[in-house]
């Protein structure tokens, strides 16, 4: 039993190392592919503009009604706020999801791959009541829409 467990841990460790190796190798071979490094600057930014510059390389998005955000009007639990972003804008390259009231506003970015359709859902944490922003990058330009979500119990800091 004991040896078996160890074997398992070992296998897991080597598997993880293998994946990282493959990822690095793929990055070297195909730098044009979507292998963008994790945009640290964007995620550590404290303002929305800085976050967008860090994540999408631009700021100052235009308002667009072609972006639809589906999120609850009132979130009972700020730790789990389901958000769906849809956009009918053509040629979407990436989507940034921002919770304006959070200490680090940028929550997630989604980068469209082959045949990607701008329709993504996830669940986010929200510290307090604020806007949820969806910023879509298409053709080098930024478009944004927002929705206000009222949070009754904060999700950050527990």
């Amino acid at each position: 039993m004991n040896t078996n467990m160890k074997r398992r841990v070992f296998l897991k460790g080597s598997l993880a190392a293998g994946t990282v190796g493959v990822a690095v190798g793929a990055g070297m071979l195909a730098p044009q592919a979507v292998m963008a490094a994790w945009p640290k600057a964007g995620f550590e930014a404290k303002t929305i503009d800085d976050a967008l510059k860090g994540a999408l390389g631009a700021s100052g998005p235009d308002h667009s009604d072609a972006i639809k955000i589906k999120a609850p009007d009132i979130a009972e639990n700020g730790a789990v706020v389901p958000v769906t972003i849809k956009s009918s804008i053509a040629g979407v390259e990436s989507i940034a999801l921002i919770a304006a009231a959070n200490a680090s506003p940028l929550v997630a970015t989604f980068i469209m791959g082959d045949g990607g359709i701008a329709d993504v859902s996830t669940r986010i944490k929200m510290g307090k009541t604020g806007d949820v922003l969806a910023v879509v990058k298409a053709g080098g330009k930024l478009y944004a829409n927002k929705k206000s979500v009222k949070v009754t119990i904060g999700g950050c800091g527990g």
């Binding site: 592919a33 979507v34 963008a36 994790w38 945009p39 995620f43 994540a55 730790a79 789990v80 706020v81 919770a99 959070n102 680090s104 940028l106 929550v107 997630a108 970015t109 989604f110 980068i111 469209m112 791959g113 082959d114 045949g115 990607g116 993504v120 996830t122 669940r123 986010i124 944490k125 999700g155 950050c156």
Partner: peptide, 12 residues
């Protein structure tokens, strides 16, 4: 690759 995402600790 059909989708890649970068996340922060702000995801549930």
């Amino acid at each position: 690759t059909v989708l890649s995402a970068n996340w922060s600790g702000g995801v549930s």
